[in-house]
Nucleic acid binder design. Structure first.
Lengths: 304, 304
DNA sequence: GCCACGGGTGAAACTTACTTTCACCAAGCG
DNA sequence: CGCTTGGTGAAAGTAAGTTTCACCCGTGGC
């Protein structure tokens, strides 16, 4: 049998293992022994040195090399890394990650971590997917041209509001955040045409935030709502509605997923605004970074 | 605590690349060049021989070996197959979304959103992957049994600290957060055996936070650090170190990715603590939910 | 029955890759 | 200003991978 010198595996992106088992019968006995070892546990084979593998297959290194060539690889190291790659690809059916699922009572910490992270990451991704770029664009424009930006949020959303305020402030926009309803109302009453009022409420039912947005709107400010529920009351008082897409698990997870989603949206808006005036934003950011420099201790270097 | 010089990567099932980027600042210049090559294209690195890689990084083979050891691998071949495996595992980074990349100047908002969301989601996922469940478990235990928990964080990390404080408080744990260094120091001085001090610093170099943790430690409290860099100064004053895995893009993205990663870790700890005493936590949560009910407006129902 | 032939094989020689050692340099410190 | 210390690459050393080659053994022709 004129064995074709090489049946190239390089154009077989998916199935080196399959490829090998396919040509198993066409291999010589000693090579078959090698092949069987490789096919039965690619990951283990990848970890072995050529001498090791040869010994395990009760043959010589030379045969292993011949085997490599027979299946279309250049040499043993190449085979090795291909095997490692294949082996890595074929694992991971992460059954433990129930989408939007709750954490089972008996869960250990590793499971808890996996579940939470999965849901958090999904919330971020899904939020981005359903976010309307056109709406964002308009909001970015409004913020960029605003005389002043008031940001409202209560409880958990208050953190996000505060974060947004700080971000805008760092790039030189005039932004405020009020943890207190009364102060917020007072401020809203002083808004006017050309200003922006930005309300954050996960549920969209936080009366304090709605009230303040309403006030701002009657004064002529552009009102923006950030909420998870596109049909919640807050959307009635907003000119623009941006939505997050967190499928809240029960209260147990402390609404962190929705927080992350909100932060992501806020970050997008921030970057959008910053991108509108690169030079100025950059300068402002550098200045603020420098300001905290003296509060950092020596280099992050290796310790003995 | 005699910290082992090598931070083993073998127990990091998910994220060698992430692990490496975390250690990046603690590496020597020549090793950093190698690390950057590896991180920026793991698959390509896996294909190279050590001599090749050394040349590409403008250094010697010896340095590459040193780099391998620094990141916890036994030698170059091991690194190689790990890299191949990692590269295979990660699903094609859809080109527009440059991993850890910066946002191109001409980008439109849709691109910006995609890029940010992608990086944010990755930070969350990768953080979870490299998080050590055993360490978390110990921290959870410490917090569960603590007489009092002090949480420290400055600037952006302050939000996370505050969030954590609020979460713990809601399930009936006695937790404090101090936005002000002096108050924090005072409080730390009053900690004792059985208490927990939890410091958050993305860079791990925030002197205020380090100082406070140190103080807490001398008083006998268990100290925990949450940082992105496993060899940064803060880890020297911590009994337990938890790391996030945000590959910070430039300042432009305002460090949101790292914030999200921190929040995820905090959430995991929170759920872990809550899970230790389901009944009590549930009751506390229900009570707090009821408390804000009167600030919610009518149902989140469909509007005519 | 003997001999050429050819594929399959492993021992050994060889090459390349990887690892260790060591001396040098530059920076920080007393 | 000399001492120490960490980072570095050259060179020596070792192990891994590759090639060569002679041998074995079955086959088929003479």
């Amino acid at each position: 049998m004129a064995k074709s010198p090489k049946i190239s595996a390089s154009q077989e992106p998916g199935g080196l293992i399959v490829h090998i088992s396919g040509l198993l019968p066409s291999l010589s006995p000693a090579e078959q022994r090698v092949a069987r070892l490789v096919v039965s546990d690619p990951a283990a084979a990848a970890r072995r040195t050529i001498t090791d593998l040869a010994t395990a297959a009760e043959t010589s290194e030379a045969t292993v090399i011949r085997f490599c060539r027979s299946v279309g690889m250049d040499g043993y190291p190449q085979l090795r890394i291909r095997l490692a790659a294949e082996a890595a690809r074929r694992i991971e059916p992460p059954d433990a990650r129930v989408v939007g699922g709750d954490i089972p009572p008996g869960a250990d910490l590793a499971q808890i971590i996996a579940t939470i992270a999965f849901n958090d990451a999904r919330a971020v991704e899904e939020t981005a997917e359903q976010l309307d770029p056109a709406a964002c664009e308009q909001v970015v424009e409004a913020i960029s041209g605003a005389g002043r930006i008031d940001i409202y949020g209560a409880g958990a959303s208050g953190f996000v509001a505060s974060d947004f305020q700080q971000k805008l402030h760092r790039i030189g926009r005039i932004a405020f955040y009020f943890p207190d309803v009364h102060t917020a109302l007072t401020s809203a009453a002083l808004l006017g045409r050309g200003d922006v009022a930005f309300g954050i409420s996960h549920t969209g039912t936080t009366s304090d935030v709605i009230e303040v947005l309403e006030q701002a709107r009657t004064r002529g400010a552009v009102t923006v709502a950030l909420t998870n529920f596109p049909r919640s009351p807050i959307t009635e008082v907003a000119d623009f509605v941006l939505t997050t897409a967190a499928r809240e698990t029960t209260y147990r997870s402390g609404a962190t997923a929705s927080r992350l989603a909100q932060l992501t949206v806020v970050d997008c808006l921030f970057v959008g605004v910053a991108a509108r005036n690169r030079a100025r934003a950059r300068k402002a950011l550098e200045a603020t970074a420098e300001a905290v420099q003296s509060h950092r201790v020596g280099a992050n270097r290796r310790r003995a």
